[in-house]
Design a binder for these strands. Structure first.
Lengths: 192, 192, 192, 192
DNA sequence: TATGAATGAGAATTCATTCAT
DNA sequence: TATGAATGAATTCTCATTCAT
């Protein structure tokens, strides 16, 4: 026998993600997905109960990847401003390099596949935890405006999300000048 | 009778919009739409060629409404900071009060219904023109950072979009304190 | 619009019944059923949730028809032996003329479609009530063996069922001689 | 090793039989069968060409077992009535103890798997031969009604089949009293 | 126009069978 | 042989669209 290939789950989820970016949830067909993933239709059903579960699983898969390493190469003893700059850049890159992620999530929350009870926003908050922590730390050091940190995270992410969207849409990478301006607005906006 | 017809078109489009906010394009079924609009399935097809056209029409309908008056109650001779504060608030309110709009557009661009040639981004830019103008004006007065105004618009709208999303999601209106903080971050971010 | 045709339910159920007699539950396909009933596949799904419910409904439909008029043309003041002879003949004819019924029920009780909780055997007992009553009446008149009437019904029906099966299988009607013998065995068997 | 193979064939056939009693031919899935038999799906296909052949084989397997010794412990020189009583009891026990047999045959004859040319009814007649002989013997001795013995066999078996069904369904064994009544009806019915 | 039952192409899902290990 | 993952044809079921009333 062929051993149940864990890679295949990744393959199918990854393919689904790419396709949803292209055709939307509305356009995802199981047979197309199978074809594009290079497996038989039935194979998809070995790894996933049905279309519903596949898409639910997709969400969990993303949360796993997304949470990834926001503060990957940030050393502990850098000044806070630098830390925030780095984490913001990581967040931006994540968004730009994985446009499928945002695309999927946008669709997911307004679809018949999403049920409020999915451990949804918990996961999202978890993903933003590193940014949150950094801002709170900044408040403790009186470097950051003393206000609801939740709202600050919202504003910061809003800026970065939008910049990512534009970069994806125009297919142009962020230039150093654009990045400096972006961070300048971000930092001046939140610093106390 | 003509007005009755127009009413029905509006009824169907409005219903579709509300439903898409809930279930997404992926979940919109013509029969459900008819039921929720209180007409027969066949009736929908009297006013719209097919689902494609209905959704295309929806887009045009939105473009019409959306371009709404961002600088409605802003008098010409107020200081720029106040003008920007007012226009930002208008933009935020627009977003919060018409959650269907954003929801639909999000879905639309990643769906099989969208064809690149739709006069899409033109309209979007048109809608943001007032904000753009104000920022350029601010740069002329040396009040606003001297940088690509396009990017500034992006950053400003990003913040406001995200705040709107949170308000919609949590079903809580923006408190005065939240608004003040939001604008403070926005303004400190862009002022020179 | 075309008004929802109650006849169509009958048409579909009747067609299904005939087909099951021919190909068994194992061989019943929704598309074949639709074709043979002269409707579109989708139409079947207007009247029945899914294949499961269709078959469940079939059972109820049968119970309704089957219970029919076992003692149809039996006048109240005939001697008991004649009454029993007539009711037995009715029962036999029912079985022979509606071979689909037996065929379906045989299949149904051993199928994934049957769940114990179906108001099953109640209905069956109800159908046999007239025979039961007559036998009890006979016991009161000391004409019938004084023993568990339930078991007597079982034995009587067993004989008649088997005779019906043979008649159906050989495609030959019961001759008068065969009927006289059958009833002679039946009557001599149960009379006291 | 040869005996091991034979064991596996028996195992698969026996398992299939039990499953068909439960879910019918309609519900028998090769993968379920394999699982319940404790082998891999592929293994079933080592011993049987395909599902068709498996079921055909099942039929032959039954024909082999079923023809079991109806007049096993009946000594030649007992009175005819006793012989008939014993053979009837054997027949009844056979039915009750091997409910799978009847279940399978019921399903088989109305399935796409059955082809008229299967040596079906021949075998059945063969199985009933001992009863037939006894009845003819009884007629020769003027103990049994002088009528078509075929029909008499039908009636006798009909009674016994039905009693067996009830016993299987209610999961209760036949009590001595029930058996005495059953045989009384049987015997009084056929004796001259 | 308005209705909603009917249609049937097309999408989702199942399951007998194959095949690499 | 034995295994069970993989296959894809066959089947169930959905839903945009038509049409008789």
């Amino acid at each position: 026998m062929r051993s149940k290939d864990e890679t295949k789950v990744q393959l199918i989820l990854g393919t689904a993600l790419k396709m949803i970016e292209r055709v939307g949830l509305a356009g995802l067909k199981m047979s197309d997905l199978a074809k594009e993933a290079g497996v038989a239709t039935g194979t998809v059903y070995i790894y996933f109960e049905d279309k519903n579960q596949l898409i639910r699983e997709l969400y969990l898969y993303l949360m796993h990847y997304n949470t990834a390493d926001l503060n990957q190469p940030i050393s502990e003893n850098e000044p806070l401003k630098i830390k925030i700059k780095k984490i913001a850049r990581n967040y931006l890159n994540n968004n730009i390099n994985n446009p499928e992620h945002g695309a999927f999530l946008e669709q997911y929350f307004r679809s018949p596949y999403f049920h409020e009870d999915d451990a949804t926003h918990q996961a999202e908050e978890l993903a933003l935890q590193p940014i949150y922590s950094l801002l709170v730390e900044g408040q403790r050091q009186s470097l950051i405006k003393d206000a609801d940190p939740e709202l600050l995270v919202t504003l910061v992410c809003g800026m970065l999300n939008e910049v990512a969207k534009v970069s994806i849409y125009t297919q142009k990478p962020i230039t150093p000048a654009e990045w400096e301006l972006t961070f300048s607005v971000l930092w001046d906006g939140i610093r106390s």
